[in-house]
Design a protein around this nucleic acid. Structure first.
Length: 302
DNA sequence: AATGAAAACAACCGCGAGTTA
DNA sequence: GTAACTCGCGGTTGTTTTCAT
């Protein structure tokens, strides 16, 4: 049995809205509200439109405080940032940008921002080839420097091509070693992944994450959320086994195949509204992926 | 000025999830 | 328990506008 149509398509007007229709819809909603029933609304409002069409028109265009026009740099940054961590969840991204609609952001991403980023990545690549990438802080004798310099750009391009994990603007992977002889790399400044690998199976780190057995930081491979950076931490002695290409493509593939929240994630766990802020989202993500044994175990990598 | 291509924007479609009877 | 209904979302398509030749 097929789905019942939401309206009689032969008796509804389609295509662009006229100013008169806009006025009718706006006036009706401002006077009576939506009544929680978009399907019945057009009839009551005297519009020959499908309820879904009315809803879309209201949400994307007529609703008060809708912002149209150019996106600011800050908005760009938020979009890229969230896209990198949650993918094309436009409604969630829109909730962080007051006045912007998911449709607006989606269109902006598809038509401008993606290209803008591609352009940045390309020019950034050229600059780094000339300057030997001042952000890359490798031990002086490390042979890894050349390895990572040659691979990182390709990895980012892969991610862009895969259209799922997007690098944050102005952020090249930033490699450095800390006092504990761990190598970090960071993508972005807002979101929020920290991977710590402390065993020998680093050739394909993403596939090993769910085998977490403790959170003592020594024997556990763990994934956690909540920091302000996308960070990968790898013991120095292990870095020679790890290729960024491998990491990035695996990560992108997992996201593409299973989604950010994994197969077990229920959308009902993740209620949000216009007041939901990033911290709440992070908290929800965190709680949805926690297995309660002290290790945030993301099931779909098992 | 004319025209074709590309970009931008608005709207539609189909699906999944939640709700209700 | 389940079928029907509604909502909201993301992907896609269609139309309009802008740009290049």
């Amino acid at each position: 049995m097929g789905r019942a149509p939401c309206c009689d398509k032969n008796n509804v007007k389609r295509g662009p809205w006229s100013p008169e229709e806009d006025a009718k819809l706006k006036e009706f909603i401002e006077k009576y509200g939506t009544g929680g029933n978009w399907i019945a609304l057009p009839l009551k409002a005297g519009l020959k439109r499908c309820g879904k069409s009315c809803r879309l028109r209201w949400l994307n265009y007529l609703r008060p405080n809708i912002k149209h026009g150019d996106f600011s740099d800050e908005e760009d940054r938020v979009i890229c940032s969230l896209y990198a961590s949650i993918g094309s969840r436009w409604s969630i991204i829109a909730a962080q940008l007051p006045g912007r609609t998911d449709n607006d952001i989606k269109n902006y991403w598809n038509t401008k921002l993606k290209k803008k980023l591609m352009g940045f990545i390309q020019s950034s690549s050229n600059i780094n080839q000339r300057t030997k990438s001042p952000n890359l802080l490798f031990p002086p004798t490390s042979t890894l420097q050349t390895t990572f310099q040659s691979q990182s750009q390709a990895s980012i391009s892969n991610l862009l091509r895969d259209s799922y994990v997007e690098p944050i603007p102005l952020v090249q992977p930033n490699f450095m070693y800390n006092n504990n002889n761990m190598m970090n790399f960071q993508l972005g400044t807002n979101n929020q992944h920290s991977y710590n690998f402390h065993d020998q199976s680093l050739m394909n780190p993403m596939q090993t994450i769910s085998s977490c057995s403790s959170s003592d930081g020594l024997s556990c491979k763990q994934i956690s959320y909540g920091n302000e950076e996308m960070m990968c931490q790898i013991p120095f002695e292990e870095t020679q086994k790890f290729t960024l290409d491998n990491y990035c493509t695996t990560w992108a593939d997992h996201q593409k195949t299973n989604g950010y929240f994994g197969n077990n994630f229920q959308s009902s766990q993740f209620q949000y509204d216009d007041h939901t802020n990033i911290e709440e989202i992070k908290e929800l993500i965190s709680s949805s992926s926690s297995n309660g044994n002290g290790c945030n175990n993301v099931g779909y990598w098992g």
